[in-house]
Computed example of a mutant assay.
Amino acid sequence: MVETSMNVTFPTLMKVFNQSLNNVQWITTAYLLAVTLTIVLAAYLQRSFKFKSLIIAAVTAWSKTKVSEKPYSIRGSKAFSDLKKQCGQQAQKREDREDPDAVFDPA
């Protein structure tokens, strides 16, 4: 299923990334290999270790990488502020349409 969906996107990927068909095919092959290895590794880990141990190891690994990164706040990010601004504008438009006291001006 994934292979089929990737094949359908070849023309788009070639255009967007300005790559040849050969390069896109190799990238797709590498992606599918990574997915396969992840599935095999997950099955091995699931058979070899307790679920609780896997969760503790995953959370520990995740927290170690997050501590080493530069801390940031989602509230301070530009993407969040842009999204907040868009939502505010849409809410204002909705209020303007729904305001019963608004005077209708056909002009």
Rank of each mutant, 00 (worst) to 15 (best):
Q46C: 12
I27H: 02
S63R: 14
N18H: 08
D82F: 02
E3S: 07
L83Y: 10
V40S: 07
Q19A: 10
F10C: 07
F49D: 06
S53C: 08
V8F: 07
A57Y: 05
T29W: 03
A102Q: 13
A30Q: 09
F49M: 09
K78P: 00
L21I: 04
T9E: 15
V2Q: 07
E3H: 06
L83Q: 09
K93D: 09
Y31G: 02
E98I: 08
T36W: 01
V40H: 02
D101T: 09
V35Q: 01
K50Q: 14
W26D: 12
S48M: 06
E3F: 11
L13F: 04
L32R: 01
L83H: 13
L33N: 10
Y31M: 04
Q92W: 08
V8Y: 11
K15S: 12
I56G: 00
R97T: 08
D96I: 12
A79Y: 08
T65K: 14
K70E: 12
E95K: 14
W62E: 03
V35F: 09
G88Q: 12
M6D: 04
F49N: 10
Y44S: 02
P71F: 03
T4G: 11
S68W: 07
I27F: 02
T9A: 15
Q86E: 15
R97Y: 11
Q90V: 11
F51Q: 13
